[in-house]
Design a binder for these strands. Structure first.
Lengths: 217, 217
DNA sequence: ATTTAAATTTAGGCAAATCTAAAAATTTGT
DNA sequence: ACAAATTTTTAGATTTGCCTAAATTTAAAT
């Protein structure tokens, strides 16, 4: 598998609800910052290799094999992210680009040993679940802060948007995974939220609230 | 820099006494398992980029910039090898292939942090010196066991041939870096050696002796 | 010092991954 | 339901890294 093939598989997985929902070449191209025509070419190649199901003009889904491959890449990506943050002391907004490179290193033994070294972590630094060797992971029971009823109480367990910009915003505002959050009030006018986080009271926009996952306790 | 470019630079460095001695395209091709004509192409490209000095039919040497690049790659390779052996518990004969991949990961910060995490090691698992950030490393004062006078006493600090086959042989015969070795006698007939290693007496062929480095104490 | 052998380069070609521009299919709006 | 807009694919070109086969240069041998 080339890097490019792996990246396309990953994109289809992420855009198409784990590869189950048909994704347009346009969408893939946009995510990958390439052109739709290039995606068409690649998708044909992946179809040849039985990694995707593809019908002209109808979008792409992953085959069973494709899902397996995608989960393998995601597993590697997220394990490396844990390594970078926990062992090398990177901050959570710096690790994505490096993990994008590391995820393509080929060695099953390496990733098994890395997993062991890290004590079989279940979540990456952004709260996303890490598939195990067989591609299984518990569908984290978490909800977007924006979609939880007022007075809900829980722990911040993940972010939906893991862009560097958003993560830096959270750092600046001292919001981190593990923080205890209570939704105090919803402002109907602009859909913003008043929350209690730790022992502070904060006012966060809807955009922030709809990118924070909490686990209701 | 592409992987292929980096690999060519590395080959020129290793074959040409750190890039200072002209290397033939043939030699490079053989080491890299490619064809001389392909090497010619690449070498021209590297010359364009001022990474090598190249005169048709006269072989290649590294430019100052080329040496810098080579040292950077070697630094990465060897630091990753230390990581694999010390942290992930790989054996020293397994790490080369994986490090060949990892050495191409691009992130200065990553390698600095890895270096710190590993406590700025000076040698890789085969006893080869690791260049520091500025490309400097002490020229390890070590000699081949085969070239040391009888009755010399020292510590085994490295291997010349780090092929998996040789390393496995050493493991099987319980010869490891750090072992104390005394050259007891040289057998003139076949140039083999009788040595004391730890508290055992061993008889090793010239081929073995000329691939083991010791540091005379 | 030629001739022969070996090494090296050139020329031309191929496959992968990308692109642009044009053609074809699908979707949308009225 | 049909024309217009949008999406998607095809066709053809480009770049990179590699190859084979032929030509050229250098080195070796008699």
């Amino acid at each position: 598998m080339t890097h490019s093939e792996e990246n396309h598989i990953k994109a289809i997985f992420h855009l198409g609800n784990k590869g189950t929902v048909a994704v347009s070449t346009n969408a893939i191209a946009e995510l990958m910052e390439t052109k739709p025509s290039s995606v068409t070419d690649m998708v044909k190649k992946l179809a040849e290799k039985n990694l995707v199901h593809y019908k002209k003009y109808q979008g792409v889904t992953l085959s069973e094999l494709g899902v397996k491959v995608a989960l393998g890449i995601i597993r590697k990506h997220r394990l490396w992210e844990v390594f970078l943050v926990e062992k090398l002391d990177f901050s959570w907004d710096e690790v994505h680009e490096i993990a994008e490179q590391l995820e393509h290193i080929k060695s099953e033994k390496l990733i098994d040993k890395l997993d062991t070294f890290l004590n079989h972590p279940k979540f990456d630094p952004h709260g996303d679940p890490i598939p195990d060797k067989n591609g299984l992971f518990k569908p984290a029971d978490r909800k977007l802060l924006s979609e939880v009823p007022v007075n809900s109480n829980g722990i911040c367990v993940g972010v939906k948007d893991s862009s560097s910009a958003f993560l830096k915003f959270l750092d600046k505002n001292k919001i981190a995974l593990g923080d205890v959050i209570t939704v105090l009030e919803k402002e109907e006018f602009d859909n913003s939220f008043y929350i209690k986080i730790g022992d502070r009271r904060e006012h966060i926009s809807n955009q922030i609230a709809s990118n924070l996952f909490i686990k209701i306790s």
